[in-house]
């Protein structure tokens, strides 16, 4: 019995995976055409931004911090990308330039958060809330109102299927590969040490500030990935994009078995957590509940899932 408990303790994501499979079956019963390429693809397109942001959020949370500014980073990256593409006059070169600018902005936002929290020792919650306001303000400065379409090349490419698989799936695969590469580096152990036993980690000589700043930079980078995907989806600029992503990403991280106190968890778990969140929404939508009740039921199930996730993590 304790062997099972020990096995599960290091693999909390298995619990999330079981929940995901159960939700998938229920969804399949309610929506018989779920397992067709088109429906799966459109589902993945909807879930992908949350998945990507949740991956980035995991690193910050693992290090014992939190990033409430991810939603605003997504908005800022979006408006910078579309504005740069427009300024460069569209075309393939313009699109690549816009994407590069977006990625730089995402990383820069992350570096700023990390520097404030790790170097100046600001409290992470209030600080990232404040930088979130600033990033959101900058997004409105760059593009005051929604609009400014991206060239057709951008969204056509995003919607296409090179080598038989849709781009959204390639993006997910690429993200998982990055996660796997990071998981194999010493960085992830150092980060968990920084989150779990900060004083002890400091005393063993780890460069904590550097590690935590890198985590925030990764979070900014993944937020930028999410923003580029959303831009492919909406095909235009929107300074208010991504408002709900901060909370959704934190929920996904917790559902994926990462402790909010820091020190343990994995980005793979967060991917599963984000999928569970999305599937809960799907099931509620297809269950044919009265529209008025959908938000309430979704809130209740999410709260129960969060409570369950925390309980399972502790029991083990």
């Amino acid at each position: 019995m304790s062997a099972v408990a020990g096995f599960l303790r290091s693999r909390l994501w298995l619990v999330t995976l079981s929940a995901l499979m159960a939700l998938f079956v229920v969804n399949w019963i309610l929506q018989p055409n779920l397992v067709t390429p088109n429906v799966l693809k459109s589902n993945l397109s909807v879930f992908l931004p949350v998945i990507l942001v949740a991956i980035g959020q995991t690193y910050v949370v693992l290090g014992g911090d939190i990033d409430l500014s991810v939603g605003s980073i997504v908005a800022l990256v979006n408006v910078v990308t579309v504005s740069v593409i427009a300024a460069l006059g569209g075309g393939a070169g313009g699109v690549l330039g816009g994407i590069a600018a977006g990625l730089v902005v995402g990383i820069a936002c992350g570096l700023l958060n990390g520097a404030l929290v790790a170097l100046l020792r600001f409290q992470a919650i209030v600080t990232t809330f404040a930088t979130g306001i600033i990033f959101g303000g900058l997004a409105l400065m760059v593009l005051p109102t929604a609009g400014l379409p991206v060239p057709a090349e951008y969204w056509r490419t995003y919607g296409s299927s090179p080598l038989g698989l849709p781009v959204v799936l390639w993006v997910l695969i690429a993200a998982l590969v990055i996660v796997a590469v990071i998981a194999g580096r010493p960085f992830i152990k150092h980060l968990a040490a920084a989150g779990g036993q900060r004083a002890a980690a400091f005393q063993t000589g780890l460069k904590l500030a550097q590690i935590r700043i890198l985590a925030y930079a990764l979070c900014g980078l993944f937020a930028a990935f999410a923003s580029l995907c959303l831009t492919g989806e909406t095909a235009s600029g929107d300074p208010l994009m991504g408002r709900t992503l901060a909370l959704a990403s934190i929920s996904a991280v917790v559902l994926g078995g990462t402790a909010l106190a820091g020190g343990s968890g994995s980005a793979f778990g967060s991917v599963l957590g984000a999928l569970v969140l999305g599937m809960i929404g799907n099931v509620i939508f297809f269950a044919g509940l009265p529209f008025d009740y959908q938000t309430l039921i979704q809130g209740l199930i999410t709260l129960l899932a969060l409570a369950g996730g925390v309980l399972v993590a502790r029991r083990n």
């Binding site: 934190i250 929920s251 909010l260 008025d292 309430l296 979704q298 709260l303 969060l306 409570a307």
Partner: peptide, 23 residues
């Protein structure tokens, strides 16, 4: 009792109360 982090618990409750308000 459940030792849910306050940030998560009260955020989750926000969703429930907002849903209740719509009903």
């Amino acid at each position: 009792l459940l030792r849910i982090p306050p940030l998560v618990m009260t955020l989750g409750m926000t969703g429930v109360v907002q849903g209740g308000l719509i009903v």
